[in-house]
Amino acid sequence: MEIFQIAGIGIIATILIIILKQTRPEFTVLVSIVTGVIIFSYLLPKLAYVIDTIRNLSSRVNVDISYFNTLIKIIGIAYLVEFASQICRDADQDSIAMKIELAGKVIIMVLAIPVLLTLLDLIVKILP
């Protein structure tokens, strides 16, 4: 079970950070980044499995594949933004974290515009 490994890594990293915090606070951020990356890379294969399953399902129910790709991209951007902004928060840099989140939101909005346009088209078509 991976969950035991992940939990163990998290606890060990926390202990190391507490030890380092008194003498060298510069290294605590690096330790937390590496811990985050390692936990994330444990999760990536699982996520790949989920996405493959959803893709199979969508091809079966005959939905336009481009919309589905947009959805996947938005999820990916959300993950990355969360990852980066959490690292910034750990280092007490709330303002940078806010800006990263803002950038993520804007990019997600840009990605969503084609979907919005087709939705509007549909509404216009339906309306008499």
């Binding site: 990536l44 996520l47 790949a48 996405i51 996947i72 991209k73 990916g76 951007i77 993950y79 990355l80």
Partner: peptide, 8 residues
């Protein structure tokens, strides 16, 4: 890895 997975 994330880029490949989410096709970004």
């Amino acid at each position: 890895d994330v880029r490949v997975l989410f096709r970004l």
